[in-house]
């Protein structure tokens, strides 16, 4: 059955077969039936990715296979699905980025322990990033909330990205230069099947680098790494 969902203000018509996917998208289903414009995600677009995910359970597989087609369509509106854990700290949006298994959720859980009254989850795995202006990015909710199912339905302006890397020491440096480009390219979901899509992603990353502070946190996954990051953010935002 086809459903109309709204993600960061953009309507999509998506085919849904499993209960699992329905449950995950149910909060995004558009109640207003009078929709003039919607992006149509075809079965063909999804099937290309569905075939690559045959090791997953059918529901997870179906939901996951929607990510790249939806992100491709989102790019027309300067939005995309990004791999990371988004959270708000003192009402400002932040993103933990990095490859799977690097410790994004662990880092968030440590923050919860140390500074629980200062933070709130936005999305645990793949939020939607909207470039509203050249220098303004917004983090939006999405149906892809990760294994721990961490989510809220709040949107927040992005104030910083913390790119995680495992290490034997804790160290944090601001890194708004070209050395982080390849890493960020790997965190944005899209098919790259046309140069226009590649161009859109390049533009988003360029604007991120020039307007949003990005830190690389090499860390041991311990409390000290959280205290260090907290100190840096406090100093940067001068609380």
């Amino acid at each position: 059955m086809d459903y109309i969902i709204t993600l960061c203000g953009i309507c999509f018509i998506i085919p849904v077969k499993t209960r699992y996917t329905y449950k995950r998208i149910s909060s995004f289903i558009e109640k207003n039936e009078d929709i003039n414009l919607a992006e149509y995600i075809s079965v063909d677009e999804i099937s290309e990715y569905d075939e690559e995910l045959d090791s997953l359970r059918p529901g997870v597989r179906e939901l996951t296979s929607l990510i790249i087609p939806i992100s491709d369509h989102l790019l027309k509106y300067n939005c995309c699905v990004i791999h990371g854990l988004s959270f708000s700290w003192r009402n400002k949006g932040f993103l933990f980025c990095g490859p799977s298994g690097v410790g994004k959720t662990t880092q968030y859980q440590l923050w919860e322990t140390e500074y629980g009254d200062e933070i709130a989850i936005l999305n645990g795995d793949k939020p939607i990033l909207e470039q509203r202006r050249e220098d303004q990015f917004i983090l939006h909710p999405s149906p892809w909330t990760g294994k721990e199912d961490l989510y809220s339905y709040d949107s927040k302006q992005l104030y910083g990205i913390i790119y995680l890397e495992q290490g034997t020491e804790n160290n944090i440096v601001q890194i708004n230069d070209s050395s982080i480009v390849l890493s960020l390219l790997q965190e944005i979901f899209y098919s790259a099947r046309t140069v226009n899509l590649v161009d859109n992603v390049a533009s988003i990353i360029h604007n991120l680098l020039t307007s949003v502070p990005i830190w690389k946190l090499t860390n041991k996954g311990d409390t000290n790494s959280v205290i260090l990051t907290h100190e840096v953010l406090e100093e940067f935002y001068r609380y």
Partner: peptide, 22 residues
Amino acid sequence: NPEVICRKIGNGFFLLSSKKTW
């Protein structure tokens, strides 16, 4: 190659190609 673009990203310059030519 028409499937390649050159873009300034941050302070660096990159050639980026679409999947058609990977």
